[in-house]
Design a binder for these strands. Structure first.
Lengths: 152, 152
DNA sequence: TATGAAAGACCGCTCCC
DNA sequence: GGGAGCGGTCTTTCATA
């Protein structure tokens, strides 16, 4: 994975687009003191370099009805069960993130649920129902005061 | 926080926009079998209801040079130190997420670093340098095989 | 090779049905 | 909710340094 070589122009463009993917090119051009054509060229270059992988709307999970956010540390009976367990977790739509980690757990997942009851259901009937999983440890998030992206 | 009342049209629109925030209204209209004007009305309604909070480009952190991702569980000397500690953590650009949690830790953060050395620096000289922090536990992520959003 | 200016195609917004 | 027209935005091309 080689890194893309950035100059300050690329960084400025990225910063703006990371807070608003629909910033007009003309405005980016004004902010950066270059022409809109140049903006277009740079964005296209970053897209092809795989730095920009797409655009998405930010959605308020709470307003979508997902009030409960939690992390679950998972220990496997056997490290070899990792790939298969991952596939089973992928099928659970409540599992929004998964990490393969060193430390106390083998797999670490983030789960979004509609309520505590829903979380219980996911945890007991879906996650812990996976045979390869030996034990789990749950961390309920009450607040998410910081949520941002890496700085270009 | 009341939930927005969704019908299937809203859900379809959201799903498309969550994978590509710049999907043309005309294409959304074709996919959903309604007119572009209707798409516009629905998106505007979701925006004003706070369901859609903005748009952003997805960026490949690795290509930006951030190769190391880790979670750090933090224990505070005193629960009252929480607000102040949070402000100090917010000033660290490597801290991309923070959660106030129940369970083993008081605060749980996600850190992105450019290298193991960089991570060490952040952990020792920045995070653990905060007086209110009693102890930390680090979980290094080797892979992030699942990373998606909640389903509308 | 990277940038800037201008023209054409496309899209989103608004109004009226 | 549907359809048409206007205004703005993106993309492309070509000239330039």
């Amino acid at each position: 994975m080689e890194n893309y070589r950035f100059d300050n122009l690329d960084k400025s463009i990225l910063k703006s687009l990371m807070s608003n993917a629909r910033t007009p090119y003309a405005e980016l051009a004004k902010q950066c003191g270059v022409s809109a054509g140049t903006i277009h060229v740079r964005i296209e270059k970053m897209r092809q370099a795989g730095v920009i992988t797409g655009t998405q709307v930010r959605v308020d999970a709470k307003r979508l009805g997902y009030d409960v956010c939690c992390f679950i540390g998972i220990n496997l009976n056997n490290a070899r069960d990792y790939p298969h367990t991952l596939e089973l977790l992928r099928e659970l739509e409540e599992v929004v993130e998964a990490y393969y980690t060193t430390g106390n757990y083998s797999i670490f997942i983030k789960v979004m649920a509609r309520s505590i009851e829903h979380l219980q259901d996911v945890l007991i009937n879906k996650v812990q129902a996976i045979e390869a999983i030996q034990s789990t440890e749950t961390l309920i998030s009450l607040q998410n005061p910081i949520n941002r992206s890496v700085t270009p």
